[in-house]
Write a protein that binds this DNA or RNA. Structure first.
Lengths: 329, 329
DNA sequence: GTGAAAGCGCTAACAG
DNA sequence: CTGTTAGCGCTTTCAC
């Protein structure tokens, strides 16, 4: 069967020492072109693949990067994850990952075992309350879609995002607005909520808010609550697209016409927002790019390069579709 | 700073040898309760965490499992992935993963490097044409949502799935039916298409098919094609929910009333199918459970336990929503 | 240029 | 019950 072939086997076959094989493998030191060829031949012949674990043990480093996300089932994160993975994979890194469901215990568990596997870096999306876990690790960390002072971070401009949404509803004539407030321990959610509220408070409109998780399920529950509690709502700013979709859904069910009687704005611009009916006006986040960017930063950090800036803020924009009144009121 | 603390440090601190520390770590061999306590204390005091890489090198095994999926951006896979991960994580395994986009090169690349990292097993969703790659690996492999003779597999009953969809359209009165045919090198797609066609061919109805990728984007393109080519279509069987959503979308755009003038059936029952309007009648696959089951099988294989059966087929069912005429015609 | 030897951190005989 | 020793597969001085 597939008995593992080691560097020694290659050495023997090529009639050289393991050290020499190692040298050609790593392009380190000098090797005669002839012996180099002999070694390569042996390698190909034996289908030799170096054992990364042994390598990792000696070098106390690896090609593994840990990715810690809340929940890959939320469509926002797969896009992010692919951005990270595509970039990393291309540079020879592999990613080992875990979903935490925002649970600190799981976060720590994953981070610990990732480190035990000699990961060279971590990309994490973890509530800022738990960020201590990420500080003073022995490997660089980049946070995505989350923000703390100290840690390098990639995130979108949620202050603009929140304001953009609010502006839009105001400019399309809403006077009774409900804002769904996502979990406030995640800074992006906090920012977009605050900045929307801030803008709205300066206008002469009625505004209320309801707390809501980021899932379709919870959106659904809160939608019922919303329409019961504030039946004459004219505009809704949702904390993400999933929740916005739930609002749309409940509105349709109740025979409320969107966007004529009610306008809804989502957040993220995940695929779903295009698919729902009416299609969803939303704040676009460059999700995939955030992943790519985070991987870029991490690799720089791993290579001890200086970062231009610790915090990389990416722009968002309003994507108008059919859940709002467009072209003015 | 965080200089790594090794087993030797613990040994020194506890006044014993490394071997003894190892013993208490692994609960192997006998250790005096007192020395055990001393060791534990040293461990806690030093915050010692064993180096999994060293462990892995010696034991030629690890707690790592490789997960190979086509594209986590397709909402079907995150659910599957979480099923896998939740199960594995609980048993102390960690997952290292890669998206292949159905590209054999990437598949092989990932599998190779996973093996180089001493993974103890692989869970893969890979087109059956490429299954040779997976055979004769030195670790057990379980395929998910894919089928080959030789390899253990977890998948849903797509023959029933295809027939269920076809039956439904017939029983709700469709006489002009178009079936979207997904990529046929994936057995599940093949099965569901064939069995739908088979059933339809026995009925006295007009049936056509169009090839289609599994994405919303391609669905969109093919939707236009479909309505141009077969404008009087009464029923559509889509290859998955994403594509079905695209059909719905195009139908609405063209002012075709669903389900009155046109009925649509999806496949998978991902969250989206509930969110679209009208909500989508679809074939439900137990996606998360498939992941859990696959992890179960793999762990058994890793532990050298015998499997009851190599192929685990999970049931599907028709989930009726509002894109079909329900309660008979 | 190349080989011998030591060692990364851990575990598994083998003595004692 | 516990320490000593050897070795997992690889890389890296250090001689030659």
């Amino acid at each position: 069967m597939n008995m593992t072939v080691t560097i020694k086997d290659v050495a023997k076959k090529a009639g050289v020492s393991a050290a020499t094989v190692s040298r050609v493998l790593n392009n380190s030191g000098y090797v005669y072109e002839d012996t180099r060829k002999a070694v390569m031949e042996a390698i190909n012949h034996l289908q030799y693949k170096p054992n990364e674990v042994a390598r990792s043990l000696y070098k106390r480093t690896s090609k593994l990067i840990g990715l810690v996300l809340p929940d890959i089932t939320n469509p926002f994160f797969p896009a992010l994850a692919r951005g990270v993975e595509d970039n990393l994979q291309q540079q020879g890194y592999r990613v080992i990952f875990g979903n935490t469901d925002g649970d600190t215990t799981k976060e720590m568990e994953y981070i610990d075992t990732f480190l035990q596997h000699n990961v060279v870096g971590l990309i994490a999306s973890v509530d800022h309350l738990h960020h201590e876990v990420l500080t003073n690790l022995r490997v660089p960390v980049v946070t995505v879609d989350r923000i703390t002072e100290e840690l390098p971070a990639v995130y979108a401009d949620h202050k603009s995002g929140g304001r953009l949404a609010a502006e839009k509803l105001i400019s399309s004539g809403c006077e009774k607005i409900v804002v769904l407030r996502g979990p406030q321990d995640a800074k992006p959610l906090y920012d977009r909520f605050q900045s929307a509220m801030q803008y709205l408070s300066e206008k002469n409109v009625s505004v209320n808010f309801i707390d809501c998780q980021l899932s379709f399920e919870d959106g659904r529950k809160k939608a019922k609550e919303l329409f019961n509690q504030f039946p004459d709502t004219e505009g809704i700013i949702a904390c993400n697209d999933l929740v916005a979709a739930a609002m749309l859904h409940e509105a349709v069910t109740r025979g409320i016409n969107v966007p004529t009687d009610l306008q809804v704005i989502g957040y993220d611009n995940i695929t779903i927002s295009e698919i729902v009916h009416p299609s969803l006006t939303t704040i676009h986040q460059p999700t995939y790019d955030m992943g790519v960017k985070a991987a870029d930063m991490l690799i720089k950090l791993i290579n001890k390069e200086k970062l231009g800036m610790i915090h990389e803020q990416l722009p968002v924009y309003l994507k108008e579709r059919n859940s709002t009144l467009n072209g003015g009121i």
